[in-house]
Simulated scan of single mutants.
Amino acid sequence: MKNILVTGALGQIGSELVAKLRHIYGADRVVATDIRMSGHEVTRSGPFETLDVTDGKAMLEIAKRHQVDTIIHLAALLSATAEEKPLLAWNLNMGGLVNALEVARELGCQFFTPSSIGAFGPSTPKSHTPQDTIQRPTTMYGVNKVSGELLCDYYFHKYGLDTRGLRFPGLISYVTPPGGGTTDYAVEIYYDAVSKGRYTSFIGQGTYMDMMYMPDALDAIVQLMEADGSKLKHRNAFNVTAMSVDPEAIAASIRKVLPSFVLEYDVDPKRQAIAESWPDGIDATAAAEEWGFRAKYGLDAMTADMLSQLGAKERMARNA
Score class of each variant (00 low, 15 high):
Asn3Asp: 09
Ile4Tyr: 02
Thr7Cys: 10
Leu10Thr: 04
Leu17Gln: 02
His23Ala: 15
Ile24Phe: 04
Gly26Ser: 10
Arg29Val: 00
Ser38Pro: 10
Glu41Cys: 08
Thr43Met: 10
Gly46Trp: 05
Phe48Ser: 00
Leu51Ile: 05
Val53Cys: 09
Leu60Phe: 15
Ile62Thr: 01
Ala63Asn: 03
Lys64Trp: 07
Lys64Arg: 09
Val68Phe: 03
Ile71Phe: 04
Ile72Met: 06
Ile72Ser: 02
Leu74Thr: 06
Leu74Gln: 06
Ala80Phe: 09
Ala80Tyr: 11
Thr81Ser: 08
Glu84Lys: 14
Glu84Asn: 11
Trp90Tyr: 12
Gly95Gln: 02
Val98Lys: 12
Ala100Phe: 00
Ala100Asp: 00
Glu102Ile: 03
Pro114Glu: 08
Ser115His: 03
Ala119Asn: 06
Phe120Val: 06
Pro122Gln: 08
Ser123Asn: 12
Ser123Ile: 12
Ser123Thr: 13
Thr124Asp: 04
Pro130Ala: 05
Gln131Leu: 13
Thr133Arg: 02
Thr133Cys: 10
Gln135Leu: 13
Gln135Arg: 11
Gln135Glu: 13
Thr138Gln: 15
Thr139Gln: 06
Met140Pro: 00
Gly142Pro: 04
Asn144Thr: 14
Ser147Asp: 03
Leu150Tyr: 15
His157Ala: 14
Lys158Val: 11
Tyr159Val: 02
Asp162Cys: 02
Asp162Ser: 08
Thr163Pro: 01
Thr163Gly: 01
Leu166Gln: 03
Gly170Glu: 04
Gly170Gln: 03
Gly170Cys: 06
Ile172Ser: 00
Ser173Asn: 02
Ser173Thr: 11
Val175Met: 12
Thr176Met: 13
Pro178Asp: 07
Gly179Cys: 08
Asp184Cys: 11
Tyr191Met: 10
Asp192Thr: 13
Ser195Asn: 15
Gly197Thr: 14
Tyr199Thr: 14
Ser201Gln: 04
Asp210Arg: 06
Met214Glu: 04
Leu218Ser: 06
Leu218Tyr: 06
Ala220Ser: 13
Leu224Tyr: 06
Met225Ile: 14
Ser230Trp: 04
Lys231Ile: 03
Leu232Met: 15
Leu232Gly: 09
Lys233Pro: 00
Ala237Ile: 00
Ala237Asp: 12
Asn239Ala: 04
Thr241Asn: 09
Ala242His: 01
Val245Ser: 14
Glu248Ile: 12
Ser253Thr: 05
Arg255Phe: 05
Arg255Gln: 14
Val257Arg: 12
Val262Gly: 01
Asp266Asn: 15
Asp268Thr: 04
Pro269His: 11
Gln272His: 13
Ala273Ile: 09
Ser277Pro: 05
Trp278Gln: 13
Ile282Tyr: 00
Ile282Glu: 00
Ala287Lys: 01
Ala287Asp: 02
Gly292Lys: 13
Arg294Ile: 03
Lys296Asn: 15
Lys296His: 09
Ala301His: 05
Asp305Met: 05
Asp305Gln: 13
Met306Arg: 12
Leu307Phe: 11
Leu307Gly: 05
Ser308Arg: 15
Gln309Pro: 00
Leu310His: 07
Ala312Cys: 04
